[in-house]
Design a protein around this nucleic acid. Structure first.
Lengths: 228, 228
DNA sequence: ACCTGAACACCGTTCAAGT
DNA sequence: ACCTGAACACCGTTCAAGT
């Protein structure tokens, strides 16, 4: 509707152009409403033109995810390892918030591509340098990554819900229909629950819990981690 | 394919029957392959018959999620609050693993229904009894819930990937193509990373980090939390 | 190689109609 | 109320064909 068929000059179709159009459509019409036919129409070509560059829809999904993961910044240097971990997690969260479709892509498509490995390399490098042994570093990486993905996906979903009047109305209805006899705590904490479904403060709260847990455990064996 | 059209006697169609058939189909053919027409065919009725009981596909999704959330057990009594938190989180994870579609439903559909409130009530009650103030209880609840959902969804996705030979082959190919000059840590920790993508031990590792963080912080103000 | 056009086997949902 | 049947506007993908 918006783009008005920018007729592409012949023989100038390429993977990056398609990925960009796909990303554009996902962010405009929503990740679910996205379709190959829609991308093709936006590019002014037939649906089958895309199959020259991507084996199928999932292949295009993977390319979009890889494209977005490339935007995760490098780990900042010269800081303490907890601050480095914080930076990586916050950067990833920020990217997920800027591109909500990435949360969906990371959560529903099998992994592949070098960019995901690059992000993992950054975080794993920090942990290893801090003195974590191999297994603990791997476990911690998975824990942090899944926390960021889970917390941010939830945040996005709640924000989407708040924007959709129909869904928002239903949520309010459900909340108000809860008897304070059956659900005393939920009813009592309704305002707090509404306030803590997202935001920087909520994200940092969980992240700091994990970091406090790491520092209180004997995960870090090297005393050299006291730099800065 | 499996169920062989159990022709339903006339006028015996009802919501529970439809939910059960829908759940069955999601677990058999995969959450994505699920369709209203498929459910209708399985029940031996036309697609439109379902619209008597559900306003649309999303409405049926919500009913299935509510049906599954009802299976989350009550919080065990007479234990310390950290053990109670552990029990709630592990129970939810177990249910998600048993019904992988629930992970997808919780992650992509707006919230509604009493059963989700029931689960929240259980965890929030534990935290409040332990002495958490309102805001901290709400924050902790969101953190724990999103951790369980994120960690378990990731675990399910990885398990699905391992089962699909095509996806598995691609993941191996990507991993082996990583130069150890560019991604030294990922290459070095490949075996550990493969081992820590899921399993009870990995889940408990992250959960214990969060609990250690909670106990090391001054989140709990009431000294009465030392029961047992 | 790059792209088209017709076709296939699907979707969710609306609408008018039957009982 | 409960359910059917035809129809609409979509999908992803295959296949044969064009350049």
């Amino acid at each position: 509707m918006a783009g008005a068929k920018t007729r592409t000059p012949r023989n100038t179709l390429n993977p990056e152009l398609i990925v960009r159009a796909a990303l554009d459509l996902m962010e405009t019409k929503g990740t679910d409403a996205f379709s190959l036919r829609g991308v093709a129409a936006e590019l002014g070509v037939g649906p089958m033109a895309l199959y020259t560059y991507f084996r199928n829809k999932d292949d295009l999904y993977d390319a979009v995810r890889n494209h977005l993961m490339a935007l995760v910044p490098a780990v900042p240097e010269g800081e303490s390892w907890p601050d480095q971990v914080r930076a990586v997690c916050r950067d990833l969260r920020r990217l997920l918030l800027e591109h909500p479709c990435l949360a969906q892509l990371l959560g529903s498509r099998p992994l592949s591509g070098h960019e995901t490995a690059r992000v993992a390399e950054g975080l794993l490098g920090v942990l290893r340098s801090a003195g974590f042994d191999k297994e603990t570093a791997a476990r911690t990486h998975t824990t942090l990554f899944t926390y960021v993905l889970g917390a941010t996906s939830w945040e996005i979903q709640m924000a989407t819900e708040r924007r959709d009047p129909e869904a928002w109305r239903r949520l309010r209805t459900t909340m108000e229909s809860l008897s304070s006899a059956e659900f005393p705590t939920v009813v009592e904490l309704a305002p707090e629950l509404a306030r803590t479904t997202g935001g920087d403060e909520q994200f940092d709260y969980g992240l700091d819990l994990l970091l406090a847990g790491l520092e209180s455990s004997n995960a870090v064996r090297t005393p050299a981690s006291r730099s800065r």
